[in-house]
Amino acid sequence: MTEKDKLQHAARLFKVLGDETRLSILHLLAENEANVTTISERLNIEQSNVSHQLKTLKTNRLVQSRREGKSNIYFLDDHHVHGMLEQVIAHVEEDI
């Protein structure tokens, strides 16, 4: 992967992270794994919107899922995602 490819991928990732709904979902999943219903209820967002946002997050390797019975359980893809969230929140808190 060239430097240009890396920067394009990073820019795409920042664009995905720039959505408040997706950021809220990631923040919730940093605390606990959850299914669509739980995410929808905790964030007061329609389930269809949650599903759409989770698809975007999964496509961009920010979340993963596993099947449990009839539900998919979503969780952060890896420790890097958790670290990014912590760093962004810490940076925001510096300004407050």
Rank of each mutant, 00 (worst) to 15 (best):
E33K: 02
A30N: 05
T21R: 00
E3W: 11
L13P: 03
N35S: 05
I25W: 02
L13E: 07
L13C: 02
Q8A: 06
L23N: 01
H82K: 13
R61P: 11
T21S: 01
K6D: 05
L57H: 03
L7C: 05
E3T: 10
N32C: 06
Q53I: 12
Q87V: 10
V81D: 05
I96S: 14
I25M: 00
I45M: 04
Q64K: 12
T37A: 04
Q64C: 13
L23M: 07
A90F: 10
S40M: 10
N32W: 05
Q8P: 03
I39V: 08
G18N: 08
N32A: 06
H91K: 15
T59L: 14
K6L: 03
H79E: 15
I73M: 03
V88Y: 11
D5P: 02
L13R: 01
L85D: 02
K15G: 07
F75M: 10
I73F: 06
Y74M: 03
H82P: 03
G69A: 08
Y74G: 01
A11N: 09
Q8I: 11
H80F: 07
T21A: 02
K55Q: 08
A34I: 07
I25A: 10
H82V: 07
L13V: 01
L23R: 06
L23I: 02
Q8M: 11
S40P: 07
